[in-house]
Design a protein around this nucleic acid. Structure first.
Lengths: 222, 222
DNA sequence: GTCCGCATGGGACAAACGTCACAGCGCTGC
DNA sequence: GCAGCGCTGTGACGTTTGTCCCATGCGGAC
């Protein structure tokens, strides 16, 4: 696919004019990576931010014992590693391709240059970063103020909502859900089981069907 | 104090030219609030962002049972409620003055206008939001991947580091620490006690002295 | 087919965490 | 002084969460 075509479909393209889009496309370097490729490592110096042209990327941190906390999953049209480009620090998280992925690499210098020339780009990025901040505030609230059951119920409801809005996210494994929820695989399995015996969900091979949306919402407040 | 004088001392003033600073000052409305005043409420529509000219403001979320999770404490020269101005959503958190506080209120429309006229302002805000994001990623990691002991050890080390860098933060009560750490008062008390018997800290009336910095750093990894 | 890796299910147990209750202490305001 | 309030200290208890371990099932690679 043409790079310009890709750029036209990034999440914040609507806020940019044609000239800015052209310039973005001209500054980007394409890079294809396989599933499992580590794109940035937490703590490494950051030279670029990335747009996902196709594929999917996981943004996460890891404990010394190897437990994973996912901050965000970046879909096609979205960006990552944006923070260090603007605050000048090292990469804040480790990022890994979850699928064969095509990236557009935007070097720091190029971004700063583009922002000078196309102020609309700065506005668009402010919008993006603000949204990301809101998401993270939600994640903090979840982790600090709710039980695993509550967080899981919320995750299930979110997934269901996303599925209705067109883009059906791939079914997550228990391990992946655990990494989103700040817990471990076994807890997810047990919590799902308890939702099933309570009649809130039906566990089918590889997928979960919600039977009692309101019941789940009750659980979500724990 | 003169409003312009205040604006000159906001954290990101260094990135702005004189004209932009003047314009910011001209757009701001001053507001004084007592300690304990709620400035924004989570979920309310947002009309403005705020600069703290003097005082201190707490940004937090609350569970249904009343437990508090502090996202951030805003000191003089810093800003808050910035997210909803740029992503268009409601206030993401409840904010409360911890001291008698002087605010500069920057209405959404004024900010958008200023950014059009002074693109440097957008750059400065990108820098700010990126830094805030990095902080929150750290908070998420803490909550998801570390025990209360580990988080507390880190908090003590941070406070000590901040004290060395000139601005001695006010000693926190156990309840306040708990709100930072996503736990409850009793846990903080017990964890401090355990650090004391381990010889890592000395508990003095109202303040905590670090005796074994390296020992604390070890604990911080839990 | 067999083997292997990965996802799942589940039991037993231990550690971490939160709740409740109560007591003491120091300060402020009356 | 004394009452009231907020901060602290502590013990007992139950819940939540995490760890370890093993068994099952499924699918792809060989």
């Amino acid at each position: 696919m043409d790079r310009r075509e890709v750029i036209r479909h990034v999440s914040f393209a609507g806020l940019l004019g044609d000239a800015a889009l052209e310039a973005l496309a001209a500054s980007a370097v394409e890079r294809r990576v396989e599933r499992g490729t580590l794109i940035t490592l937490e703590g490494d110096p950051a030279e670029a931010m990335y747009l996902v042209a196709a594929g999917r990327v996981k943004v996460a941190r890891y404990s010394a014992e190897g437990r994973e906390q996912i901050m965000h999953v970046v879909e096609a049209g979205d960006h990552f590693n944006t923070v260090p480009i603007f605050d000048g620090g090292p990469c804040p998280a480790t990022t890994e391709a979850l699928l064969p992925t095509t990236l557009l690499v935007l070097p720091r210098a190029a971004m700063h240059d583009l922002i000078q020339r196309y102020p609309e780009l700065a506005t668009a990025l402010l919008h993006e970063l603000a949204g990301r901040l809101r998401m993270l505030v939600g994640l903090v609230e979840d982790l600090a103020l709710h039980t695993v059951h509550g967080r899981l119920a919320r995750l299930l409801l979110q997934q269901a909502a996303a599925a209705k809005h067109g883009e059906p996210p791939p079914p997550l494994t228990h391990t992946e859900m655990a990494a989103h929820l700040g817990t471990v695989r076994e807890m997810v399995g047990r919590a799902l089981k308890s939702f099933e015996v309570a009649g809130l969900i039906a566990l089918e091979r590889g997928s979960i069907r919600i039977l009692d949306r309101d019941g789940l919402r009750k659980c979500a407040e724990m």
